[in-house]
Write a protein that binds this DNA or RNA. Sequence first.
DNA 1: CTAGTGATGTCTGTGACTGACGTCAGTCAC
DNA 2: GTGACTGACGTCAGTCACAGACATCACTAG
Lengths: 201, 201
Amino acid sequence: MSAAVITRLDRMTRWEPGTAERLQEAALELFATRGFEQTTATEIAQSVGLTERTFFRHFSDKREVLFHGQHLLVQAFLAGVEAAPPDAPPIEIVAAALRSVTSFFPDERRQRSRSRQSVIDQNPALQERERHKLASLATTLADALRARGVDELAATLAAESGVTVFRIAFAQWLREGERRSLADLAAEVLRELLSVTRDRT
Amino acid sequence: MSAAVITRLDRMTRWEPGTAERLQEAALELFATRGFEQTTATEIAQSVGLTERTFFRHFSDKREVLFHGQHLLVQAFLAGVEAAPPDAPPIEIVAAALRSVTSFFPDERRQRSRSRQSVIDQNPALQERERHKLASLATTLADALRARGVDELAATLAAESGVTVFRIAFAQWLREGERRSLADLAAEVLRELLSVTRDRT
DNA sequence: CTAGTGATGTCTGTGACTGACGTCAGTCAC
DNA sequence: GTGACTGACGTCAGTCACAGACATCACTAG
């Protein structure tokens, strides 16, 4: 700990910016090494020269540290919604949102996303949080659709379907050996959804 | 507390059966009264003459007490899958599963479901757990579909869609003043989903 | 020069959860 | 019938996530 203090005193400004980012970086590293439950919030904080209390000032709970920055994903979805033509049917708006989002995950990001996802996949509590984030994303998306005049029920269904397509495509994208872009995968999954829901006898 | 002890000593058998159910009952009552976070596991346990340790022997965590019995819901879904004709397309199998599940929620159950849901709706941690349960239900459903020969991706999409339809219909069913049966609502939501996914220009 | 302001540290408490171990009534083999 | 066994529970002690209250101190506006 004294080493950390010295590190901090080395700087000219009192507090470096990007504290949350440094904590997130350290957390991901520790979670990947020792596992989520085996890593305490105190350890994460100390590894970047801070205290547990500061950790919890930046993140409402221990899981949250892995989801910092998710609002960018939401914004990308919403930007796609805005970009769709005004008279497009809901499913077309969702398709536009998917195209917008997928551009936020270029192939360079795939490897890092894999590490992160592997941590999440190994802990039920983190999976729970991830689902929750996607669920509120769906709610936000539905709100945006309704704001564009889409009917309540249709908006909810289209938004939920869109998020489901994204989630499945994203999981595909992270599979070992997968080469296709997220955009291609999302388009394919969406096509399959349309096909599945058309099959009724 | 002493009253609870006396109650227990009144019985001839040492331990009454249905401990989990009594804990669940007490928990729902306390959660509805004081709120989820304001109720401790110790309080729940003591209100039925047991200790905190016993509470956690029955439920892996405090939230879980509200989800005791969920396996019946899963079974109902699976029974519906089994009941579908062997050559039915995935969406038809899902429709059959929905018909099966909805019969497990007769109108008599609506009021109690409302109390429970209102507790869940007031606490993010509980909403998180609920989503998680529905997510693993979707996974189980997808497995069942694949076991019937449905293609991997189609199975996942159909299962996720089915659970989404169920969730939306269930929320509708609980709305104040809603009179339609869950079965009717689910059928309507499913119809709307098919319509939304057909609208593509 | 002085009164904020904001990010941090310190201290202390509560409650969720866990492991180890003890208790005791009912059961079952012998 | 008795003794080993089991299952559901209690007791005790511990860890850790998280939160409130308050102090600190570099920096900044006036």
